[in-house]
Amino acid sequence: MLLEKVEEISGENLYACYQCGRCTAGCPMTGEMDLMPNQIILAILRNDESVLDAKTPWVCAQCYQCGVRCPKNVDIAKIMEALREIKLRSNVNYIDLKKINKSYPQIAIVAAMRKFTG
């Protein structure tokens, strides 16, 4: 089930979330997201698999602003990683390696490869 997998990969207790919305309020990427971070958590708690098709985890920049502000100490960045891993581990790449602009700094390329490839 989705919730179990996410809890296992992230190590976070999603039930602690009481939907206060502070993570979303602080997240810099919400403008590009279809589902907000706290909505993602709610969807996972309801085992709603459609959350795996959301744009949100792929836009997350792992800036940790959510986890550092959460009043229940839930690290939402880890939950986003878990969602990405679930998709990537089924041998799917989010980006096409051939299309990467190689003139960009290594840290960007390495990071993108780690986050977006299976």
Partner: peptide, 22 residues
């Protein structure tokens, strides 16, 4: 909704609140 942070408008000194209406 719980605001993450407040910002101050430097001219008017009004306070900007960013929050998600959950």
């Amino acid at each position: 909704g719980r605001p993450g942070e407040l910002q101050e408008d430097p001219e008017t000194k009004k306070v900007i609140v960013r929050v998600e209406d959950t």
